[in-house]
Computed example of a mutant assay.
Amino acid sequence: MMPVPDPHPDVFDVEWPLRMADIDRTGRLRFDGAARHIQDIGQDQLREMGYEDVHPAWIVRRTMIDLVAPIEGRDFLRLRRWCSGTSNRWCEMRVRIDGRKGGLMESEAFWINFSRETQGPSRISEDFLAGLQRTTEVDRLRWKAYLKAGGREDAEQVRRFPLRVTDIDLFDHMNNSVYWSVIEDYLETAPDLLKEPLRVTIEHDSAVALGDDLEILLHTYPAGSTEKFGAELTDRTVRTLTYVVGDEVKAVASVFGR
C-alpha cells in the first residue's frame, strides 16, 4: 500500500487506547474492531476539517485491510489517515493503525460521497477536494471491482448469518463493521491463517437490510488453481466469502493467504 507521507500536515494523526470490545479471546484487535476504528477516524477527520455537516454521509464500496503483525490487548493505538486518490464524487483513504508494542494493520478504503436527497453519489465540494488532494497526485480515480463472487451450486459451505437490530446503521443498512465480523467467524475455523501476514478485502455490491435472509457462501481456490484474482496472486490460496440474499450478491470478501 501507499506509504505514509510523513511528516505531512494533511495526514490526520490521532491516538487512543485499544478497548476490550474490539479484541478477541487472545487479545488481538479483530478485523471488525479495526473497521470501526477506520470509520471513527474518518468521522473525526471530517469534524476536524469542518466538513461534518457539509459531507455527512459516506458509503464504503471497498475496504482492504492488511494484518501485518497482530495488535494485542492493553495497547495504545496510533492512527494516521490520509487520501490516496480522488475523483469528484469519491476518494480512496488510507488508514494505518500502529500499536506501541509493534503490531500493525494497514487499510485502504474506497468511499463514495452520498446524498440522502438523491440517494446516489454526490459531488464533493471543491475546497474539501483540494484538501484531500494535498496527499495524492491521483485525481481521476476510477472504480474497478477486483473480487469475483462464488456461486451457490459449488459452495463448500452455505451458512446463514442472522441480522440483529444493532447491526443496522443510519442508512438502514447493515453497518460496514458487521461485514467484517463474518471474517472473524471464518478465521475462528482457520486459525493458522493468523500465523502469517494476511490481506482481507471486502467489496460491496448492494446493501443488506434488516429482515434480509443473509447467507454466506464459502469457496477455496488453492494456489495455482485460478487466475481470477490476478496473475500476481496465483501463488496464493484464496478463500472467498460471498454475501447473498436469495440469488442476489450483496458483497464479496476474499482472504488472501500464503
Rank of each mutant, 00 (worst) to 15 (best):
225 S>W: 01
135 T>A: 13
252 V>T: 14
30 R>P: 03
239 R>E: 07
238 V>D: 10
181 S>L: 05
65 I>V: 15
99 G>I: 01
250 K>A: 01
146 Y>F: 09
30 R>W: 02
54 V>H: 05
209 A>Y: 09
99 G>E: 05
31 F>M: 11
103 G>D: 01
53 D>F: 09
215 E>G: 03
131 G>S: 04
7 P>K: 12
92 E>N: 14
153 E>D: 08
38 I>P: 01
4 V>R: 08
149 A>T: 03
228 K>S: 10
225 S>Q: 01
225 S>R: 03
73 G>F: 00
170 L>I: 15
139 D>Q: 11
126 E>Y: 00
125 S>Q: 10
241 L>K: 10
133 Q>H: 09
165 V>D: 06
76 F>D: 01
20 M>S: 09
188 E>K: 10
48 E>S: 15
250 K>D: 00
230 G>W: 04
111 W>Q: 11
153 E>L: 03
183 I>D: 10
97 I>E: 01
194 L>T: 12
249 V>D: 04
96 R>N: 08
202 I>M: 11
238 V>S: 13
258 R>E: 14
220 T>S: 04
22 D>C: 09
26 T>E: 14
173 H>T: 04
70 P>I: 09
125 S>V: 04
67 L>S: 07
168 I>S: 05
56 P>R: 10
242 T>K: 07
204 H>Q: 13
170 L>E: 14
4 V>N: 13
40 D>C: 06
63 T>N: 01
10 D>H: 11
209 A>D: 06
143 W>L: 11
187 L>V: 10
55 H>A: 14
87 S>Q: 06
45 Q>C: 06
1 M>I: 14
16 W>H: 15
117 E>C: 03
187 L>R: 12
219 H>E: 02
221 Y>Q: 09
244 V>W: 02
255 V>L: 12
99 G>H: 00
196 E>I: 06
203 E>I: 00
221 Y>G: 09
212 D>G: 05
132 L>Y: 09
168 I>F: 01
112 I>M: 13
128 F>K: 03
64 M>K: 12
